[in-house]
Simulated assay, not measured.
Amino acid sequence: MQQERSRRSNRERSDTTRAAIIDAAHALFVDKGYADTATPEIVAAAGLTRGALYHHFEDKKSLFRAVIEREAREVAATIEQFAPDGLAPREALLAGAAAYFDAMAVPGRVRLLLLDGPAVLGVTEMAAIDAAHGGRTLEEGLSAAMAPHRLKEKAVKAMAFLLSAAFDRAALEIDAGAARADYAYAIDRLIDRLIDP
């Protein structure tokens, strides 16, 4: 029993340390960008040592990947929260679209996921991260909404990929100061045209 408690407390300490590193890195990556953030700054902000950082992460890039994965999970969770099971496919897609724009309005998220992420990790790795989180939800939603058209799975996958790119481009424009309502309207009309051509 004592040994089990000790293992649990060691794991909890390790999880707490890892979270502190990710939190500190997130704040610095948002504020300064990946390229201008050094690992000594991260450990100083986390109140830890470089040894602690390298115990949990191979290098700055692997730490950045952990930050990106957490952000992608949070975006997907927001979408799933506001587009719950039980909605009709069209309503789920429209609710998911609005939730995506809400999720991407979190300060720094556009920079991390749409600018620095592809530049640091590459487009292929970012696509894999997206597919593991929000991309899967979008593809499932389109597939359900387009079921009457009996499109091939590859066609639905391609449409989801292209629609995802439109979402990302809209988020970049909104982050740069464009009116969200204009882009939300355009995305909603695009969804309608895709599911009811």
Rank of each mutant, 00 (worst) to 15 (best):
A25Y: 06
E71V: 11
L63H: 01
V67I: 01
R50D: 06
T17L: 09
R73G: 13
T39M: 07
G51K: 04
I21S: 04
A83Y: 08
L94G: 03
I42Y: 01
G33S: 10
H26A: 12
E74P: 12
V75D: 00
Q81M: 12
D36E: 14
H55K: 13
R50I: 07
G86H: 03
A27F: 04
F82R: 14
F29H: 04
D59F: 00
A88F: 07
I42K: 00
A77P: 08
H56L: 03
V75C: 02
V43A: 03
A24T: 06
A20I: 09
R70E: 15
A76L: 06
K32L: 11
P40W: 09
E71N: 08
E80Q: 15
K61H: 02
T37C: 07
G47N: 10
R65N: 08
A77C: 11
L48H: 07
R13F: 07
A83C: 07
L94H: 11
T49Y: 08
G51P: 07
L28S: 03
S62P: 01
H55A: 09
E80L: 04
I79G: 05
G51C: 06
Y34N: 04
K32D: 09
L53N: 02
A52K: 10
A83S: 12
A27W: 12
A19W: 01
D15R: 12
A46N: 05
D85E: 14
A38C: 08
A44Y: 07
I68A: 03
E80S: 06
D36I: 06
V75H: 00
T17Y: 00
A38F: 08
D23G: 07
E41A: 14
L63I: 01
R70H: 08
I68Y: 04
H56A: 01
A76P: 05
A52V: 05
D23H: 08
E41Y: 03
E71P: 08
Y54P: 03
P84Y: 11
I22L: 10
A35V: 15
R90Y: 05
R50Q: 13
V67R: 03
A44T: 14
D23W: 02
L94I: 12
V43K: 03
A46Y: 04
T39E: 08
H55E: 02
D59G: 01
A35P: 09
A27V: 15
R70K: 09
A24E: 02
A25H: 04
S14P: 12
P40R: 14
D23Y: 04
A25K: 00
I68H: 02
T49S: 15
D36L: 11
E71C: 10
H56M: 02
A27Y: 08
D36G: 07
L94Q: 11
E74Y: 09
V67K: 01
V30Y: 05
Y34A: 02
A24W: 05
A76M: 06
P40I: 08
K61G: 01
A76G: 02
A92S: 14
G47K: 04
D85C: 02
A72S: 15
S62V: 03
A72W: 05
V30G: 04
T78S: 10
P89C: 13
E69Y: 05
V75Q: 00
F82D: 15
D15T: 09
